[in-house]
Design a protein around this nucleic acid. Sequence first.
DNA 1: CTCAGTGTTCAGTG
DNA 2: TCACTGAACACTGA
Length: 278
Amino acid sequence: MPELPEVERGRRLAASVAEKRIIVQVHCAEDPIVFEGVAPATVQRLLTHKKVIVVHRRGKQLWFELDQPPHPLFHFGMTGAFHTPAAESLRLKSGPKEPGGEWPPRFAKIHLCFDDGGELIMTNARRLGRILLRQAPLHEPPLNKLGFDPLLDLPSPETFSTMLRSRTAVVKSLLLDQCFAAGVGNWIADEVLYQAGIAPQRRARALSDAEAKRLRGKLQSVIRAAVDANADDARYPTHWLFHRRWGKRKDATTARGDAIEYMTIGGRTTAWVPAVQG
DNA sequence: CTCAGTGTTCAGTG
DNA sequence: TCACTGAACACTGA
């Protein structure tokens, strides 16, 4: 679930219930992995009675700016999501395999109650997500190590070309590197390379200026479109590789009928279309 | 039962 | 230093 568009959806949901409200009650699951060593009682004590000023996102990281530090920072890992009672009862899409309807949902890790009666829960079934506390989030890991966010910070075409030229890595690996581009995950990297017509195993520094320009443009347009669809994949354009890439079927093809091939790059399954990406 | 997986990190290697 | 590989993390679902 969570690449930049899904995390942005989470940010919007959290902002709608939390901004300008005071946290009146906090309940945390007993989970030393997700809370990474911070005792649930400590988290509860430090967040209760604080006011949420703004909910921020950068790349796949989300954090609440409170009226007083420390500020809570959320990372969804592979399976995290935010939920509200309203979203559950309206059956708004919360994720393909998320539990529907129950409140609190299964795998709830932190449950926040606000002074106006609103509630917010973060779930994390596979426990690869994290909830951390930070004094100055932007100046500490993981935020201070992130590269540009394609939605907030996209470099100019010239700068982007220069950045590519200075890297010897394979272009798909580079796109997945959060220190380079924050928020790009496995399917977005494949989608962007497919639409830009660039083979995933090419070296970043070997790309021409024209290719770099296309890559930058698709990085922006794919993420923009996914965010505008509120990360509801049923609304993604039908020509996207996204709809056809799953399952690693031997005879998978694009909507146009070109064969989809699979390989491993940087330890991740990579779907690509040789007919289009050379 | 086995294995892949929308993510990240770290140790080991070249 | 840089880049790559594989393992680890933890759990679900095909």
